[in-house]
């Protein structure tokens, strides 16, 4: 669905942001992108819906090249981005109105808009907030609303840029649960995060450093084979602990990604 080849990006002041990045993302995949601040993650995802255009190389979404302006509406309909601070993305006076804004702009008939608003509120679990003002919502509720807005556009791919970083643990879990429901509907989800606990059940984990992809494999393989500290990424504490135990002479404790996996290994 997304085909990125030799993508380079240089900012107008000459700062290189991406250096020859190539990757393909298939429909329905759940991909996590991690890396230190300034590693190029945010620049990369802004290329996927043509918010940034390549300085070199190419980006295709559903076969459409982002360098051609005429494709931008179709590309932006296919790929929706939710940012860290959703406040700047709200337009409507109520939750319902805000979600309806996207499909209305696409010129859909009002019965269809209603359906889309309803189903995206349901997926995100915010039906009871329908008549609230977006400004009056909590941080987690705001993020769920922002994601619902993208869902209502029937985007095939949703990109989440650090959406949980400002949330408390409870709201974070609610947002992650909602994201899981989206994945069950076969929507492609690309998630940028500092917190690799969120990558444990991803199909792929991509690590970026200095504008390049340095690892691209299953989370288990990435945790096992790479020294992630070098790339400024924090491996989940439980995985780090199991790695330390294994290298200190407890080889039968394999790499555990979750607390339960490690408990089981230790109890044997």
């Amino acid at each position: 669905m997304i085909d990125i080849r030799d993508l380079c990006h240089t900012y107008p002041d000459g700062t290189p942001a991406l250096d020859s990045v190539s990757l393909q993302i298939d429909e329905g995949e759940f991909v996590v992108i991690a890396g230190r601040n300034g590693s190029g993650k945010s620049s990369l995802i802004r290329h996927i819906n043509a918010l940034l255009l390549p300085s070199g190389g190419s980006v295709h979404v559903n076969g459409l090249c982002t360098s051609q302006k005429k494709h931008h509406p179709a590309i932006r309909k296919a790929v929706g981005i939710v940012f860290q601070d959703p406040d700047s993305q709200f337009i409507g006076m109520t939750v319902e109105e805000d979600i309806a804004f996207g499909p209305e702009n696409m010129g859909l008939p009002s019965a269809r808009i209603k359906e889309l608003v309803e189903s995206s509120m349901e997926t995100m679990g915010i039906c009871e907030l329908r008549s609230h003002s977006p400004r009056a919502l909590s941080g987690g509720q705001k993020q769920k609303l922002a994601i619902a807005g993208v869902l209502a556009m029937e985007s095939q791919c949703i990109v989440l840029d650090e959406v949980t970083s400002m949330l408390d643990p409870l709201s974070r879990q609610e947002v992650l649960d909602a994201v899981r429901r989206i994945r069950e509907q076969d929507t492609t989800v690309i998630c940028v995060t500092h917190r690799l606990e969120e990558a444990v059940d991803a199909d792929r984990l991509i690590i970026m450093d200095s504008g390049s992809v340095v690892a691209d494999a299953s989370p288990r393989d990435v945790f096992k084979k790479y020294d992630l500290e070098r790339y400024g990424v924090e491996i989940p504490p439980v995985a780090a602990l199991s790695k330390m135990l294994a290298s200190a002479g407890f080889p039968d404790i394999g790499l555990a990604l979750t607390k339960d996996e490690l408990l089981e290994a230790l109890c044997q």
Partner: peptide, 9 residues
């Protein structure tokens, strides 16, 4: 610490 990566943290 919010928004900081592992190194900066």
């Amino acid at each position: 610490l919010s928004g900081l990566d592992a190194e900066n943290k």
